[in-house]
């Protein structure tokens, strides 16, 4: 049973000074699927991501990834197991070039890079792979730009390329398409779809048409609790969800 689920949580809870941001969440993400986590602002989606990747420690509960309890691990340790996140606020390395951004992720394959006596030219072996990843997200012509100069949507694309550079088994994407134009959304949707062919994706997304189009399964969160779960049809027909999304839901 647990084999089908790459990621499971039990009673996941996070309290901030008396305020419960995430409350008793039991999440099960099936291997090889795109699972969406949706909910109104402040529902606790980002906090969930912070807990799953151990950027925050849960107040209560357990996180099991690939049959292993990862609750006590540090965040870098979780990443090293192939569970890699992106951030809601675009997280690039602003003063590195696009190529360097991706390369610093590819560099992880070397294990730890404490070799301060070696020239960074040894990293040139990753250039080809980096350029391929950059092409996948449509950034080829920007490869030598400094990341900070990119328009917002392109930064998000770069972030995805950097995440993919780690070849993670599971990706957590926090609003990967926020701030993107139509064209970018289509390209990144297609990318996520192709990426998910061999991986598992858990994503937070406000754009419901993207959610409807991409995800196999949806969990709706409000006020830190799971409100509903199922495929898009089930969830969107759920009366409580309709209420929570009144005016936001798409036809």
């Amino acid at each position: 049973m647990s084999d089908d689920f790459i990621l499971q949580t039990e009673d996941l809870t996070k309290e901030f000074a008396g305020f419960v941001a995430v409350s008793g969440v039991n999440l099960r993400v099936a291997r090889g699927t795109i699972h969406a986590l949706i909910g109104p602002n402040g529902a606790g989606k980002t906090t969930c991501f912070n807990l799953l990747t151990k950027f925050m420690s849960p107040s209560r509960g357990r996180i099991v990834y690939k049959g292993r309890d990862i609750t006590p691990l540090p965040p870098a340790g979780v990443a090293r197991l192939g569970l890699v996140r992106s951030f809601q606020i675009s997280a690039v390395f602003p003063h590195l070039t696009v190529l360097e951004n991706v390369r610093v992720a590819l560099q992880r394959q070397r294990g730890s890079s404490f070799d301060f006596w070696r020239s960074k030219r040894v990293l040139d072996v990753f250039n080809e792979r980096a350029m391929a990843l950059i092409a996948d997200v449509g950034l080829s012509s920007f490869a030598h730009w400094t990341a900070v100069e990119l328009p917002y949507g392109r930064k998000r694309a770069l972030e995805i390329a950097t995440t993919l550079a780690l070849d993670p088994e599971m990706l957590l994407l926090d609003e990967p398409m926020a701030g993107m134009g139509h064209e970018d959304i289509d390209r990144i949707s297609a990318l996520i779809k192709s990426v998910a062919a061999e991986r598992t994706v858990l994503m937070v997304e406000h754009n419901l048409s993207v959610v409807a189009n991409l995800s196999h399964r949806i969990t709706v969160l409000t006020r830190g609790r799971v409100l509903a779960e199922g495929d898009y049809k089930t969830v969107s027909a759920h009366p409580l969800v309709r209420e929570a999304y009144l005016g936001v839901g798409h036809a």
Binding site: A79, F93, P94, E100, V104, Q107, S113, R118
Partner: peptide
């Protein structure tokens, strides 16, 4: 060096470097 590249990444955005 390769080490220096990681240092720069940490300086630029530590949470992101950790997430990698």
């Amino acid at each position: 060096s390769p080490f220096g590249e990681v240092l720069k990444a940490i300086r630029e955005n530590e949470p992101r470097a950790i997430s990698l």
